[in-house]
């Protein structure tokens, strides 16, 4: 099977690799959906971690504890999936990396796509043996509002907003560019092919050696997906502004807007 460990260039693992590892106890699958959805069926041996449970943790220590309870040790290979374009799974994977876990990846498809492929699911819950995990914070993958405000004025820093276009037009952090999260996926996979991702950056004039900071609406899910899309083509310096636009607004920082156009009225929603 392909290695689960090369986090820089392979942030996703393919379906076949997981299928063959379902019963491997050195691999831990995390299902990031609501508990009731998980109970109705999940990939065999996956454990459930609703995003809300992760976000309720208020310190790195409590987050470590949460993962320990899911049986994740320092050397456990972790694969995360969801049913929300890979965005919630990305946020969990990113958190693991943030607390210093080395070996984590995203499943390349969502749970729905897994099912559409006719692959096995189960309602059985695996037995979880609690494990020990150390805490080695990885601050270079996170941006705070304060950091962002200074960094975005620099030449080689690119700020990417991953919300939908209409939301971006209405309000955004000044100087950001908009790559809606839907742009990051391809038919049947949560991420684009590397080639098309590289092409997108090239068209947009975003150098791959830039420091790239991603943000979205509130807790860094959609922008978490963008984090991994950028990692998939080997962009070395990517940071997630994890508290995103919600915090930025609350802090009453400057906001940009596309003026003099009634673009909302073009939407059929």
């Amino acid at each position: 099977m392909c290695s689960l460990s090369n986090e820089i260039t392979h942030p996703t693992v393919d379906v076949d690799a997981i299928r063959s590892k379902i019963n491997d106890i050195s691999v831990r699958l995390i299902d990031v959906r609501r508990e009731e959805d998980y109970n109705q069926g999940h990939i065999p041996n996956a454990v459930n971690l609703p995003l809300a449970s992760l976000l309720s943790g208020d310190s790195p220590e409590s987050t470590v504890k949460l993962f320990e309870e899911l049986g994740i040790a320092d050397d456990t290979k972790v694969v995360v999936y969801d049913d929300t374009f890979g965005a919630l799974a990305s946020r969990v994977a990113w958190t693991l990396q943030y607390i210093g876990h080395k070996n984590v990846a995203l499943l390349e498809v969502t749970y729905s796509q897994w099912k559409e492929l006719g692959l096995k699911t189960s309602t059985e819950k695996p037995n979880i043996k609690s494990a020990k995990h150390s805490l080695n914070l990885n601050p270079e993958i996170m941006a705070t509002a304060e950091y962002l405000e200074k960094a975005k004025e620099k030449d080689n820093v690119v700020l990417i907003d991953n919300r939908e276009r209409l939301n971006f037009l209405e309000q955004h952090i000044p100087g950001s560019i908009n790559i809606p999260y839907r742009t990051l996926a391809t038919d049947g996979k949560i991420l684009r092919t590397k080639e098309s991702m590289k092409n997108l950056l090239k068209n947009r004039g975003i150098p791959e050696d830039a420091e790239i900071i991603t943000y979205c609406g509130s807790v860094g899910t959609l922008s978490g997906l963008a984090y991994y899309a950028l990692k998939s083509i080997g962009v070395p310096n990517v940071k997630l502004y994890v508290n995103s636009f919600k915090e930025w607004k609350k802090l009453e920082k400057p906001i940009g807007k596309q003026e003099n156009a009634a673009y909302w009225d073009l939407s059929a929603e």
Binding site: E164, L166, R182, T183, D187, L266
Partner: peptide, 13 residues
């Protein structure tokens, strides 16, 4: 439909 979500406003005209 897909292009409208990826590159436009999620609606077409």
């Amino acid at each position: 439909a897909q292009l409208s979500e990826m590159y436009s406003i999620g609606s077409a005209h």
